[in-house]
Each structure stands twice: as structure tokens, then as C-alpha cells.
Design a protein around this nucleic acid. Structure first.
Lengths: 117, 117
DNA sequence: CTGTATCCGTAGAGATACTG
DNA sequence: CAGTATCTCTACGGATACAG
């Protein structure tokens, strides 16, 4: 079976959807520097709601990109970390991150030009 | 001014949003092989509605990633192409494409594992 | 601390019909 | 051919409250 990104029902589209997910990228990038607790992620990623963070983490865990380790302590503690698969995605995502920051100015300029004509 | 991807109101988040957009990625990748007409894009990208394709193209044009050239012929003809900025994104996106297709199997396996426990 | 459950408003996506 | 306009619908995301 061939993986055709352009085909409607190809699973590679779903993979792209996860990458494209707004919070997934930020979560994976945050985990680049090592294991993080739930609260650390929530604090670092500004603007993410509890619901969305949990939902995103579940999705990443389901896709095998992130591991979840719950410790039965009081208070509870849950550690999230990247899997090997998750780390394999890291280079690409940090490339995206640096593209976004370095070309931000050009994009904003283009928008200003577009909006004023 | 610093570009912090994790800051709520930083423009780099909006840039990431565009990259993350489902159809934008597919459109840019389709334009990788050169100028395409509206209809060619619609045909190549399976499942995209007319509305979404137009909307995506407008967004990409606004952000300076794509040019739009309308010819006043009968029937009309509109050519879309990548700008230099758009091409600068291409390597990253094709990296994403190949990651998606090569790791599709692992992701699907992880999902199956997650869903059956 | 790390979640789950519920309600609710709005943006987004599809379908359809129409136009230069 | 390449759109625009309008309608409908749902499903995403935020807020809030509660629980283990």
C-alpha cells in the first residue's frame, strides 16, 4: 500500500493533522528539553486550557509520540516525555519553530501590504 | 522585540497556525513542482472543497507565500505559484511529508496498541 | 496536583446556488 | 473556469465545577 498524502483517506493525512495541531507542536517542543510534569507544561505553554492540554497529551500518547508516567504519590505526579518516535520529529519541528521566528517579519509585512490595497 | 513561540500573543504563533493548517501544507507542497491553475490544485488535492481551497489560497497569498496571477481571457485562467518566501518553507514541509509517510506505520501501530488496552 | 464532566458560544467546514 | 454568497450544522475550544 502506498502512502499518498494527497489521497483523501490515507492515514498520512491524519499524521499531518496531528503535526498541524496547534498545541501538539508546542507540547513536543517543550518536551525537547526533557521530561516535564503536567503543571510545568501548563505553565510554559501560555494560553492553553486544561482541557486542551490534557486532550493534546492524550493524542500524542495515543500516537506513540509521548509517554505518560503517573506516580501514585500524594500529591499525585505525572511525568511526560518524548518517545524515540517523538524525538525523531523534533528536528523537523524545531526547524518549523525557527522558520516561524525568523520569517515572522516578512509575513507580517506581506499581510500589511495585502490588507492596505 | 523577541519572538517567543510560547507567548500567547506573539505573531510567531500565527505563523505556526498557517503552517499547521491542513490545506495550506498540501497546497504549498502541490505548488512545489511549479505554477498550477486553480483547477489543477482542486483536482490534485483530494477532498478539498471549493470554499476551503479559495480560502486557503487567499490566506497564503496574504502571508506572502503564494502569488496569484489572473489572466483576463475567456475562459478565465488563474495561476498560482510559490514566492521566494514560500519556497523557503518547502524543505521543511517536504520533510514533514516524508516523516508522515515513513512513520505512518509506527503511528498506526501505537494507536492500535493504545486503543486495545 | 492532575485530572474528568458538563455546558455553551462561536468559528469553521460542507453543500448548494449563482455570477463574471 | 474560477470564483462569490448564503445557509446550515457540528465540533472545537473556553469556562466552570467537581473528583481522586
Amino acid at each position: 500500500m502506498e502512502a499518498d498524502l494527497y489521497a483523501r483517506d490515507c492515514g498520512s493525512r491524519q499524521v499531518l493533522d496531528r503535526i498541524g495541531d496547534r498545541w501538539s507542536v508546542l507540547v513536543v517542543l517543550t518536551l525537547a528539553s526533557g521530561t516535564k510534569r503536567y503543571g510545568e507544561l501548563a505553565q510554559r505553554i501560555e494560553g492553553v486550557s486544561q482541557k486542551m492540554l490534557t486532550q493534546t497529551l492524550r493524542g500524542l500518547e495515543r500516537d506513540g509520540l509521548v509517554t505518560r508516567a503517573a506516580h501514585a504519590t500524594v500529591p499525585p505526579r505525572v511525568d511526560y516525555a518524548l518517545t524515540a518516535l517523538g524525538r525523531s520529529l523534533l528536528d523537523l519541528l524545531s526547524g518549523l519553530e525557527s522558520w516561524a521566528t525568523t520569517h515572522l517579519g516578512e509575513v507580517e509585512a506581506a499581510r500589511a501590504r495585502y490588507d492596505t490595497r
